[in-house]
Design a binder for these strands. Sequence first.
DNA 1: GGGGGAGGTTGATTCAGGTCAAGTTTTGAA
DNA 2: TTCAAAACTTGACCTGAATCAACCTCCCCC
Lengths: 229, 229
Amino acid sequence: MRSADLEEIRSLPLFRDMAPAHFAELTRGAYHQSFPPQVDLIVEGRPADFLHVITDGAVELFARWNGRETTMAVVRPVSTFILAACINDAPYLMSARTLVPSRVALIPGTDLRSVFARDPAFAQAIVRELAGSYRGVVRHAKNIKLRNSKERLAAFLIAECERNGRSRTFALPYEKRIIASYLGMTPENLSRALKQLREDGVTIDGATVDLADFDRLCAIALPGRLMDR
Amino acid sequence: MRSADLEEIRSLPLFRDMAPAHFAELTRGAYHQSFPPQVDLIVEGRPADFLHVITDGAVELFARWNGRETTMAVVRPVSTFILAACINDAPYLMSARTLVPSRVALIPGTDLRSVFARDPAFAQAIVRELAGSYRGVVRHAKNIKLRNSKERLAAFLIAECERNGRSRTFALPYEKRIIASYLGMTPENLSRALKQLREDGVTIDGATVDLADFDRLCAIALPGRLMDR
DNA sequence: GGGGGAGGTTGATTCAGGTCAAGTTTTGAA
DNA sequence: TTCAAAACTTGACCTGAATCAACCTCCCCC
């Protein structure tokens, strides 16, 4: 693993405070690999062998059941995913695939659990990370259960706008069909919902969004820390 | 706090392995209270002052937004809830209310965080608890996003049946309107869905359920560890 | 600079599930 | 025991969203 990569990973909240020897131990057995788009990194149901750290690109976390499929999250650099399954040595509940060319570091779960048992600072960081992930899924579930599709879309646009420093025009971060699946609707319906939002100042040209009336969107989505972070 | 109560709490996986002195420290500042039904224990958005441990009764975790409300989980003894908010010292994302007369121990968040920083065994237990909770919400979100209401109901009945030692008749654990909200549907729709399941061997009399054809239900719900635990 | 294929849009239609309104049953308190 | 409120059920109806099918358009590759 390149030392620049190591530093990047080391700087993550999850690894920042652990003992240097322990970090070395974790990364000794680790791989850092590049993947083309549409590669399955994780298949749900499999034992959780590796903690994944995405350092470049974008990874979709999704779940399948009975032929249906839904996007649970999209992970972007630099962050970790499927920590919970790994730490519990339990089967993955979600699958993961690259959306674009991506680089992912793979840290063996056995090393992770072994260091976790010995390094209190690391254990604390894991707790913080898990608590954050937990709260993320709770927000997602609330979003799906409490808002209708137009409201979810408005909230999504607001969130993306803020991720882009509140600039009123920005690019959608990934394909619309993924956004649709994440928001729990069909691509067709997303298309219609976007069109419907034109009367609220939303203009779409390809992947480019322009929000002419931020406040109006807020009136629809009523965003807040308790659901949108 | 009564010593019988203390022992019960102490026997939870979360507290089982921590140093006795630390456990004492946690419970010193703790309250153990009885509440009538329909009491709000937690209001979402408030700072997370106390870790809650339910020792008797049943507590509903729910979320509100814009006048709508949805049940996120029902917690039963003996277990903890809202650990994530507490450990992160962040606002609660969910509200909680008693469904029936209940006893709840309240452990101050400051004590929790302080002991957590010093007791590695406790930190490990917290990680395990959080990872479990995380996986629980992921399952809930998958359930809502991937199954339709009939399938969710079938899965719920199967789960309840198994909670009751697979006996083919059992009582619904709480009011139908709560079940409906948990499953993301209206009470009216739950009623209709139950009636619809009669042709699959499900009989309802008040709160009493009889599952004449377990396998048939399974064919509808396709239950599995990845969504139903 | 064509194809060809995936992603996206649009329209027509269907359907699951929500809403509304009117019952009935259950519950719990006086 | 009675009564009132809450839970639940049922039916009629409506609507948001899925489905199906056709079409467009943007890339990417030859």
